[in-house]
Design a binder for these strands. Structure first.
Lengths: 257, 257
DNA sequence: TCAAAAGTGTTCTAACTACACCCATGG
DNA sequence: CCATGGGTGTAGTTAGAACACTTTTGA
């Protein structure tokens, strides 16, 4: 792109009035050992974690940006991904923090002034199979880790708020989302599925009623095998009936949890 | 703001890589004569309508921008307003249309180049009392009108998609939204409230079951008066019990419609 | 006086809740 | 061999769907 032939002052006015620095941040949910996990990046020289995110590139949609970032951070393609909220409060970034972040990204001092005007991010949440995702740090972070959702540590900027909002959205949309399909491995047991729902909802469910209800949706295929190497009675394995699942989700799981 | 002392080429790169033109568009719902209405602005010299919207100003949040615009277009303050989706598909605006719009807004030719890179909008929906809102055109449109939701006419760009997405969201969130509280006048009859729900849902509800259900939520106060000047038996007037309503909404209207 | 709309009650059914019992397994 | 977790069944309660009758009013 060639520079427009206009004076710098004019551009400055336009940029400050009409342009925003626009990014996406991904809340990547996983499920492991009966715990909900979030994928976070460690900020070097600080006891803080950040959500994987980045700028939306020219000529790509926000959805595209989010799935590109996800692929980079987890190695996964075709992940379940959905936008849930825009965070645009001018106070969401302390100018000091913002400057630090941009400096870390090797953005020249002069350009930082441009980006400091407003910093809007679109929140996405993703549901991924914990066992298949490989946490991968980016060039600005030291490492990438699955952290406990309940106790992820100190989060940068308003990222804690973003995570909480994502979780609230997840709960609200629970009955219209392919939760199990994306968060569990292909084969899973009934108690595992129940634990998943309990963890997301934050409350206990009755074992027998849960089983009856979830089976009534006709979204599960009971397999002719049982989980091996477990204590006590070996539970039966299930997998999702893809067609049935998506048919049911369009209506929403009636009654719901 | 003073211009940063850097060369034009550099700014151009930064802007095109990291900055977006960011706006809000409001889908303003009203309810009148058993019809859902949307507030639209007429584009001059074209047989097209547009959603009221505008750029987010420096140092204001998207929410702020939306409620500011709403105040300008309807004269209403403290309106129920909620963001529902970001539209960022690079193909959502035909470059030709975009250029026309910006030219109409008296934005100089040179600056238009900046804004053409990407054009992202945050969709908000609003629920307002039809009888109190006064449609007010902005400086770029000839008039402002309540249009039928089912047949609003030709809409500019992807605004039809935005309206449809807003309606889908409204239906999904119906049981967690103060629908009646915001769309009806202070006093209303049970049939009016039912018609509202039926219109949003797009299907008939049983008169008697609706009444029993809505009353069981304990969100209505039955008044000691009836609607006057109507044919047939005069229906009783109700108004909302504000406290009860908001208590009930936190849980969601259980069961729902 | 009658058609059309509003107010109220009843019945039937399906879904949810809360349990009790038996089975399989590893320590 | 027994504690623990998994599979299945049942009774009581509640919420939802379908439906009938009476009341009020303007035309």
């Amino acid at each position: 792109m060639t520079a427009p032939h206009t004076n710098v002052q004019k551009i400055s006015e336009m940029a400050s009035r009409h342009l925003s620095s626009l990014s996406v941040d991904c809340v990547v949910f996983g499920f492991h050992k009966n715990e909900m996990k979030v994928l976070l990046l460690k900020i070097p020289y600080k006891d803080e974690w950040a959500l994987p995110g980045g700028f939306i590139l020219r000529d790509e949609s926000a959805e595209n940006a989010a799935s590109r970032i996800l692929k980079e951070r987890t190695g996964l393609d075709g992940v379940f991904l959905r936008q849930f909220h825009v965070f645009s409060d001018p106070g969401r970034v302390k100018p000091r923090d913002h400057r630090d972040n941009l400096t870390r990204m090797n953005i020249p001092e002069n350009d930082i002034k441009w980006l400091c005007s407003r910093f809007v991010t679109i929140g996405f949440y993703a549901l991924v199979d914990y066992t298949r995702a490989v946490p991968t740090p980016d060039e600005f972070t030291t490492r990438s880790e699955w952290r406990d959702l309940t106790d992820p540590g100190m989060l940068m900027m308003d990222h804690r708020v973003i995570v909480n909002t994502a979780l609230d959205t997840l709960r609200l949309q629970l009955n219209n989302l392919p939760i199990g399909y994306n968060l569990l491995r292909e084969k899973f047991t009934m108690p595992e599925l129940q634990k998943l729902y309990e963890t997301i909802l934050g409350r206990k469910l009755d074992r027998r009623n849960f089983q009856r209800k979830i089976l009534s949706y006709r979204i599960l295929l009971r397999l002719d095998e049982r989980k091996t190497g477990v204590a006590h009675k070996a539970p039966v394995l299930y997998r999702f009936d893809y067609d049935g699942y998506h048919r049911a989700l369009e209506e929403g799981l009636k009654g719901g949890f």
